[in-house]
Design a protein around this nucleic acid. Structure first.
Length: 423
RNA sequence: AGAGAGGUGUCCGAGUGGUUGAAGGAGCACGCCUGGAAAGCGUGUGUACGGGUAACCGUACCGAGGGUUCGAAUCCCUUCCUCUCUACCA
């Protein structure tokens, strides 16, 4: 959530940023916010004065009672009652205005960082880096949804039976490959100084709200009605929420956490040819990086996280490219996002396997995540990135590394899989 | 799930409805003391919002939300959570 003080003082920049993100009616909503805020502040000022008055009256009555002047106290009570009832009206108005203001603020997405390219759709993202050769496959090469059947390593039919579409069963070397990737990613994160955590994979409403999934993505998360818990769409939610309502000591920054969790996404409204096989699932595995940093360091840290993800993809010997997302294609809460895409040779498609973002103070404002500088409390910056999401990595390993003898496992993974070929 | 106990500041822990934003500790910061340190002594040490250039002032906050009252951490209702015992169970 954007800070009201910032909006008040930087109205033009806010409208400009929102417009860059193709947010509809930016100017109108910002104006409405500023007006509502003004009424809220005026109301509070008047209310505070009145309450101060009422408090001193109450105190005076107390003193009279103590002094034994009962009758005088009784006389004062009538005036005090009157005053109190007047404060109620202002109190109600203040509450209403505060709620209105909050409802408006929650609607606003984060502002794009100044370096974010203009553009509305994925076509306008900018490819800032490419690495690795796109492999040329032999004539009868197959897409991964055929390969998994051929080698009997991932079973969608079985998942259908047990749960439904998008919940595959990993079997044998397929299951082993999953576990190898998870361990590999966690170990690599550990080497880069991240502390491993295992968070809950269901979160309460306050957590889903704090990282911005609610109210924006309500309906995209699975919901356990009876207990009002959401199944996490990413480990970002529980891990970042570890630090909700906290004031961090500056010397403890930056905070670096990593965690493996399954992720659950309803993916309502997305279907079609490009969601075949492992390309889009309702449940998938992911290792996530989360960092909490000062505003001065957050962009350097974003670079560091980008480097980390590059390192992973290079060790896995996968051709990849990095996209600097254009303003219109960024998520609601992000100020700057790099997407990593891996080439999946048989599908002849680039698949998104990681998204690394700086949220600046947007999440921190909802999280109430702060630190102290020179005695003043200030919001921190939050960042996160996938390192990595498994299914599409698996898809591209299967497709890119297929040989007549079987599927070759990247060297870096062999110590984790315990085999070098799926045949 | 049933019975009981409880939720107060960074932590521990008081709190009879009226200078309680909150005793007392501990911790932390600064100062004095010391050759240096410890101990000791002194001072300070919550958050949010509002007003003010600022010093500072005001208001709210004792799990959350309502209510009673001139006045609520304290009384009443609702709700969430934690702990103990019992039951059940990976």
């Amino acid at each position: 959530m954007l800070q009201i003080n910032y909006i008040r003082e930087n109205k033009a920049a806010v409208i400009e940023g929102l417009t860059k993100k193709y947010f509809a009616d930016a100017e109108q909503i910002v104006n409405e916010i500023i007006e509502t805020d003004q009424i809220r502040r005026d109301t509070q000022h008047n209310l505070d004065l009145m309450l101060a008055d009422a408090n001193s009256k109450a105190k005076a009555i107390g003193d009279l009672m103590k002094a034994g002047k009962k009758e005088e106290a009784e006389k004062e009570k009538a005036a005090a009652t009157e005053l109190r009832s007047k404060t109620k009206e202002l109190q109600d108005l203040h509450t209403i205005k505060e709620e209105e203001l909050n409802a408006l603020l929650v609607k606003l997405p984060n502002l794009p960082h100044h370096s974010v390219p203009a553009g509305r759709t994925a076509e306008e993202n900018i490819n800032i880096y490419s690495h690795g050769e796109v492999p040329t496959l032999h004539a009868d090469a197959q897409p991964h949804w055929e390969l998994i059947k051929k080698y009997d390593i991932i079973d969608f039919e079985l998942g259908n039976k047990i749960t439904g579409a998008g919940f595959p069963v990993y079997k044998g070397k397929g299951a082993r490959l999953q576990r190898a990737l998870i361990n590999f990613f966690l170990d690599e994160a550990g080497k880069s100084g991240y502390t491993e955590v295992q968070p809950p994979i269901m979160v309460n409403e306050a957590s889903a709200y704090a990282t911005g999934q609610l109210p924006d993505k309500d309906g995209q998360m699975y919901y356990a009605n009876e207990d009002k818990f959401y199944l996490i769409p990413t480990a970002e939610v529980p891990i970042t929420n570890i630090y909700r309502d906290m004031i961090i000591r500056e010397e403890d920054l930056p905070i670096k956490n990593t965690g493996y969790t399954p992720c659950f996404r309803r993916e309502a409204g997305s279907w079609g040819a490009d969601v075949r096989g492992l390309n889009r699932l309702h449940q998938f595995d992911k290792v996530e990086l989360v960092q909490i940093a000062t505003p001065e360091t957050s962009y350097a840290i974003l670079e560091e996280m980008k480097k980390h993800v590059q390192g992973l993809l290079e060790k896995l010997e996968l051709p990849y490219r990095i996209l600097h997302l254009c303003a219109g294609d960024m998520s609601f809460t992000s100020a700057l996002t790099f997407d990593f895409e891996v080439y999946s040779a048989a599908q002849k498609r680039w698949l998104e396997v990681s998204s690394v973002s700086n949220f600046e103070a947007y999440q921190a404002n909802r999280l109430k995540l702060r630190y102290k500088v020179d005695g003043k409390t200030q919001l921190l910056h939050t960042l996160n990135g996938s390192a990595l999401a498994l299914p599409r990595i698996v898809a591209s390993i299967l497709e890119n590394n297929q040989t007549p003898e079987g599927i070759r496992i990247p060297k870096a993974l062999q110590a984790y899989t315990g085999f070098d070929l799926i045949k």
